[in-house]
Design a protein around this nucleic acid. Structure first.
Lengths: 261, 261
DNA sequence: GTCGAGGGTTGACGCAGGGTCAGGGTCAAG
DNA sequence: CTTGACCCTGACCCTGCGTCAACCCTCGAC
């Protein structure tokens, strides 16, 4: 006859685990000796080893219960199911690993490689690091919304960046962070913005295909929060009938009159 | 400005999770509007996405905290560490999967393939299924004690099983389950047992190399519990100076006189 | 006999990462 | 004014045990 710690040792589990299995009815309570100690026989060792084997395999204890008392074919079906779940889990972990290594290699958290690449190019233009970080935050949000489109979007952005006007725009935006609110260059900047947006509209480019109306405003807000100049710039553009810089779109007349809500 | 559910949606988490992150200080509590609602800005979305990315990768929330506020190189080191943990976890799961599939394919729970094979051969001799199950339970225990030796042990058993005397022994043991306690054949069985054990001792075979004294007795007990005949058989063998059938060994005189404690 | 060490017993709380009520207040639309 | 969709806090629930606490039992040494 065995004590609980001997039983536990033979089965390779802790005493606490054994008592837990008793508590949830997975292992039947054995006889007690006259002083209240549990006394186990060899059959208990065998059952406990089986429980441990399944539990270690990641089978929830609730299912271990059923499996152990199941007919062989039922058991096989159960195990197959569990195996499928394990396989899925392995795949999930490996996908996570791929993302993580890209994280560690790349810019910073939560950015696909394509975006990191794009940001590197922007930085290469001589754009201020603070601006790059703002732009990065915006892309983090975009990547979270439409993860499967992000690479295509970045490819398009790369093409757009060949335009010297856009490059000039980036450099000005980078500068904005050090301007005063009433800097006259803001109007100049708005002009440049508008020129590029008009060109885009004429080329038939309709940006964005967002899953959510408010998301566009949120993206605009990301940058606006950073500086009063950005706020003024957005106001000017909206006065001229544009929605913002995220979605290149003319806003219906009444909305302009009221201001974007 | 965003409500908590909008924030949660943009970051791909649940509202409850956001509140949980507030509670543990992972995401700072934002301003409230006049009715007590939390109001978030775009920066919160970015931080939440980062938290979610790490958390999904299996990083404990406590470490997410440190990582997010860490310097880039510290961050990279942390991520590498996490990646190593993930890799280990994947390997563990895959090992479990291999064991599980063997479980489903083979005899029953917690048995290595080599044992299943051996049991199949024993069954093929015409041994009663009930006896095979007892034998199986004993091997489950052995495999749990010395997992890395089990294949070698089974290989030796296979060789031993070529002996026609041992085959005869198995068939008699199989029969035992239907005998009465006082069946005269028990003595005959003990004789056969002794013959084989003496042969083993003379061949210099010392069975077992168990990590534990009591384990041998436990194994003997497994079978004894199944039938009174087995109990009687063990008693006879012990009277003749043997320890049992698990460990082939003569017991010192005084122990015989007192009976095995 | 008694002492301490090293078993055993039950009961309860704690952990991570939230899910899921309950019981209320708010907001926008019809 | 009602309705439905949100928001708030607080509290309990889940897994699979680890880790006290407070107490009892047994055994060998003295």
């Amino acid at each position: 006859m065995l004590t609980i710690s001997q039983l536990a040792r033979y089965a390779g589990v802790t005493v606490r685990a054994v008592r837990h299995y008793h508590q949830i009815g997975l292992l039947p309570e054995p006889e007690r000796d006259r002083s209240g100690y549990r006394t186990y026989d060899a059959a208990a060792v065998v059952r406990l080893i089986r429980i441990h084997t399944l539990a270690e395999a990641g089978v929830p204890l609730a299912r271990v219960q059923d499996l152990l008392d199941a007919a062989p074919d039922e058991f096989v079906r159960g195990v197959e199911e569990i195996d499928a779940a394990l396989r899925a889990e392995v795949r999930r972990l490996q996908a996570t690993r791929r993302r993580l290594t890209r994280l560690a290699a790349g810019e910073h958290l939560a950015l696909p490689a394509s975006v990191v690449e794009y940001l590197d190019r922007v930085r290469g233009l001589g754009v201020d690091e603070r601006y790059v970080e703002m732009e990065r935050d915006a892309w983090i949000m975009v990547a979270a919304q439409v993860p499967e489109q992000i690479d295509a979007i970045m490819a398009k952005k790369h093409l757009e960046l060949d335009d010297p006007d856009l490059q000039r725009l980036y450099l000005m935006l980078s500068d904005v962070l050090d301007w005063q609110v009433d800097d006259p260059r803001v109007v100049e900047l708005a002009d440049l913005f508008e020129k590029l947006m008009i060109r885009a509209v004429e080329a038939g480019e309709i940006t964005g295909n967002w899953p959510d109306e408010g998301f566009v405003d949120l993206l605009d807000a990301t940058t606006v929060e950073s500086s009063p100049v950005a706020e003024r710039l957005l106001a000017i553009l909206q006065e001229r009938g544009w929605r913002g810089w995220t979605q290149i779109e003319r806003v219906p007349e009444e909305r302009v009159a009221r201001g974007t809500p």
